[in-house]
């Protein structure tokens, strides 16, 4: 397929003597949703952390936009991270409780030295609107939001730096059922509108079947199979 965004080869992650990820390889194209599915402890979250280089893999290679991340220093990685952003499971845990939502959303831009005081606030308002939150929510603290609103704020923050790939680790697993569908629809819109690629970590097969273009099944740190929930013609859309 065109435009390979992420190319993972022979990834190995060990924790002490335990091997969490044992030689995992896959590619992901721009605009594609690739799900990693499997039971607790199968290595899917460790794979996500290694792709993000938040946990340096013990062996193997991660290429993002053609660039080898596995050889980069932290300083070099910092220039790549804006385009490679995580969204985590626990929406409250991933936003600082002491900061207002607008500051949380602005934080990546400030950290990258790309904050423009004159245009920044409007950019934050635009991002909140983009994820279906009224910009007035920017003044609130995370505990004043529902779980679904909080997860939307987390997505807005991930979008702030203009990513091409989102690594979503169980992004809807802790959400109430009536909220989950809206967040999945939002993620589908963002993918369609911005051409984002998603590495989508999820243990819920019904969600995976609905949302992913391709599914990699993992067990005991290895890829056991790969399948597509969609008929071939639908995949073209």
């Amino acid at each position: 397929m065109s435009d390979v965004l992420l190319d993972v080869r022979g990834l190995v992650v060990r924790y002490g003597k335990a091997t969490a990820v044992d030689g995992v390889s896959f590619t992901l194209a721009a605009g594609e949703v690739l799900a990693l599915n499997g039971p607790s402890g199968c290595g899917k979250s460790s794979t996500a952390l290694a792709v993000l280089q938040l946990r340096r893999p013990d062996r193997g290679e991660v290429r993002f936009e053609g660039r080898r991340l596995t050889g980069l220093t932290e300083r070099e990685l910092r220039r790549v991270r804006p385009r490679l952003q995580p969204v985590f499971q626990d929406p409250y845990g991933s936003l600082s409780p002491r900061h207002r939502v607008r500051d949380a959303v602005a934080e990546p831009l400030k950290a990258q030295g790309r904050w423009d005081p004159s245009e920044g606030p409007a950019r934050v308002a635009e991002l909140l609107d983009r994820v279906g939150l009224d910009p007035s929510y920017g003044e609130r603290h995370p505990h004043e939001l529902s779980g679904g609103q909080c997860q939307r704020a987390g997505i807005a923050r991930a979008l702030a730096s203009g990513p091409r790939l989102l690594v979503l680790d169980e992004p809807v697993s802790s959400l109430d059922p009536s909220i989950r569908a809206g967040v999945l629809n939002l993620l589908a819109d963002l993918r369609d509108d911005l051409g984002l690629g998603y590495l989508f970590i999820c243990h819920d097969r019904a969600v995976v079947r609905h949302f992913a273009d391709r599914v990699i099944e993992m067990r005991d740190g290895r890829v056991t199979s790969e399948w597509s929930p969609r008929p071939p013609d639908a995949a073209l859309r």
Partner: peptide, 13 residues
Amino acid sequence: PRHASPGSRLPVL
């Protein structure tokens, strides 16, 4: 999601 066809928009509350 189990009631929706893959890739479709989900009904929402």
